[in-house]
Amino acid sequence: MIDAVIFDMDGTLIDSEPMWKEAEKEVFSGLGVNVTEQLAQQSASMTTLEASAFWYSHNPWQGPSIQDVANRVVVRVGDLIAKHGVALDGVHNTLSLLDKNQIKIGLATNAPEQLIPIVLGKLGIAKYFSACCSSDNELEGKPHPAIYLSTARALNVCPSQCLAIEDSGTGVLAAKAANMRTLAVPHVDEYDHQKFDLSDFKLKSLSEFGLGHLA
């Protein structure tokens, strides 16, 4: 039986990818970087620091350090989430259902730690989460399992009794490596991609979630 459900954040609880794109384009363009769509696709799966280093290598700027620029991007993303963030379909109902059935709820994200309270606060769902962990505090982010193992430990639940809910292939790999059951909710454009074949369940949105997925 599943005792805890651990959610990814970006793309699972909130559609924040457009906000990341907007923030990066705004910040890097402001430094004179020519932000092309082709290169932006290459940097999409990188951490903010890795993306900043990537753009610097293509178009070096004068003045602020790569770390400072990465921080600017994160702050801008936080501003955009606070203004425009909305929960994805089924998020509120799924969290309420788990809470009513006394299933522990955690968060395991590659996103910067400072964005967690902004997202949960904006969506009005902070009350549901007993543990929130960011790969900021791990040696490696997903697909390494560390973030999931840390969240299970914080929830005081064995990893094998956890269900991880993810929207990305790297997230599914991380949860599987942590010996967790996985439920994928891919973006509509990636729903049929083979990288999600490893997942135990696959839904088009969390509005399809039910207690049967915990059995």
Rank of each mutant, 00 (worst) to 15 (best):
V188L: 07
S135P: 02
I118R: 13
F129R: 11
G11Y: 01
P112Y: 05
V86L: 14
N71G: 09
E166K: 02
L120K: 14
N93V: 08
K142H: 03
I2L: 10
Q67P: 06
V27R: 08
Q38P: 00
P159F: 01
W61T: 10
L203M: 04
H187A: 10
Q67G: 10
R181M: 09
R72T: 08
S65W: 06
H58K: 14
P143F: 09
N156M: 02
L107D: 02
H187N: 05
L115E: 15
H144K: 03
P117D: 13
K142P: 03
G141M: 07
C162K: 00
A126W: 02
W61F: 12
E190D: 07
I66Q: 13
K195C: 07
T36H: 11
K176G: 02
L139K: 12
A51H: 01
N110F: 03
E22L: 11
S199E: 13
M180K: 12
E24F: 06
Q161V: 00
L173M: 13
T94W: 00
G30H: 10
P64T: 04
D15V: 02
Q102A: 08
T48Q: 04
Q41Y: 00
L115T: 15
A4T: 08
T48R: 07
Q114H: 02
L107I: 09
L13T: 04
G124M: 07
A82P: 04
I103Y: 00
E26T: 05
I2C: 07
K195H: 11
L95E: 02
L98V: 07
F201Y: 15
P159S: 08
D200H: 15
M9H: 05
T12P: 03
N110D: 13
Q161N: 10
L211W: 09
P117R: 15
T109C: 04
A175H: 09
F201A: 09
L173E: 13
F129W: 09
L163C: 07
D15S: 13
G212M: 10
D99M: 03
N34W: 05
L149Y: 07
F54H: 10
P186R: 00
A87V: 05
T151F: 04
F129G: 11
K100C: 03
T170G: 00
L203K: 04
C133I: 14
F201N: 05
K142F: 06
A44E: 06
I81V: 15
C162A: 07
S16A: 09
I105M: 09
I103T: 12
L88A: 05
V73S: 13
A44K: 06
W20M: 05
K104S: 10
N101Y: 09
D15I: 02
L139S: 09
G169L: 03
V35W: 14
P143Y: 01
S207R: 03
T109M: 04
F129I: 11
T182L: 06
G212D: 15
A215V: 11
V188Q: 14
I103W: 00
M46D: 03
H58L: 05
E17H: 07
H58N: 08
G169V: 02
H58D: 01
K202V: 06
L39R: 06
K122E: 12
Q42S: 04
